[in-house]
């Protein structure tokens, strides 16, 4: 292939990727503007001034960020290594962990939170624990699928050239599984940000408080709360996709 062709291909990919890079924030901006239009058409309610002020919204927004990101951080730090261990570990161990993780996700989020409330009382901690239980499965499942999906010939050649088990994992298997691992992380991140609204039920704070205080009283409040959650989820997923682009090796299909 000629140098010119390579460059042309490179530039085209670059401009396309710039477009893609800002598509999500642009769409979020348009969405927010559109919701503002909707907002104007809704009738104001008596509670609006108590909720729709910057102090309250900001505190709940920051609370929501904290709930989601702490939970997500824990899921990522626990889920990926645990998934790798499951993938390379013995079968009975794998079955047990998946049973528990499946259980965690099969039970409705609200159910988990109520159980945790009965056990730990009100507050942010039980909310975070609930979110972690709820978000673990996608990360586990994708990490295991990613590691198990690596071409056995690649692993055999890695070991055959004298890589230790750990070297093969770190420099071959995990990088090759990273696209799937990131897909799991992104699923979980969105899941956790959405589910964190349930924290309202057990005093966890967050944007759930905003939405709840508008229910049956003010459509304007509900709209603001819902739009903030949705925008946060979309932007967080977008931010994680940027990390993914930086971390996941390009074109890993041979």
């Amino acid at each position: 292939m000629s140098v010119a062709a390579v460059t042309a291909r490179g530039t085209r990919r670059l401009s396309l990727s710039w477009l893609r890079l800002f598509a999500v924030p642009a769409a979020v901006g348009i969405g927010i503007a559109a919701s503002f239009g909707v907002f104007q058409t809704l009738a104001p309610g008596p509670a609006d001034s108590g909720v729709l002020n910057s102090t309250f919204l900001e505190s709940r927004f920051v609370g929501h960020l904290a709930l989601s990101f702490i939970s997500f951080g824990i899921v990522a730090l626990v889920g990926v290594p645990l998934g790798v261990l499951i993938a390379i570990g013995a079968r009975p161990f794998r079955v047990l962990v998946f049973l528990l993780a499946n259980l965690g996700q099969a039970v409705p989020g609200i159910g988990i939170l109520v159980l945790l409330y009965a056990w730990l009382g009100l507050g942010a901690e039980p909310t975070i624990i609930g979110l972690v239980i709820f978000g673990l499965l996608p990360v586990l499942r994708n990490t295991v699928a990613g590691i198990n999906g690596v071409d056995p010939a690649v692993i055999e050649s890695a070991r055959g050239m004298g890589m230790t088990r750990l070297q093969a994992l770190l420099s071959v298997e995990i990088p090759l599984a990273s696209a799937l691992i990131f897909a799991g992380l992104r699923t979980t991140l969105v899941l956790v940000i959405g589910t964190a609204t349930l924290g309202n039920f057990i005093g966890g704070g967050g944007l759930g408080d905003v939405i709840a205080s508008g229910i049956n009283r003010s459509d304007r409040i509900v709209l603001v709360g819902a739009v903030m959650v949705a925008a946060l989820a979309l932007l967080a997923d977008w931010a994680l996709s940027l990390v993914e682009r930086a971390v996941v090796p390009k074109r890993i299909s041979a």
Binding site: D151, A153, V154, S157, G160, V172, R251, I252, S253, A254
Partner: peptide
């Protein structure tokens, strides 16, 4: 040195 039919080059 070790060479197999499937080669097993590291695709990344």
């Amino acid at each position: 040195g070790y060479v197999i039919q499937a080669i097993g080059l590291f695709p990344h």
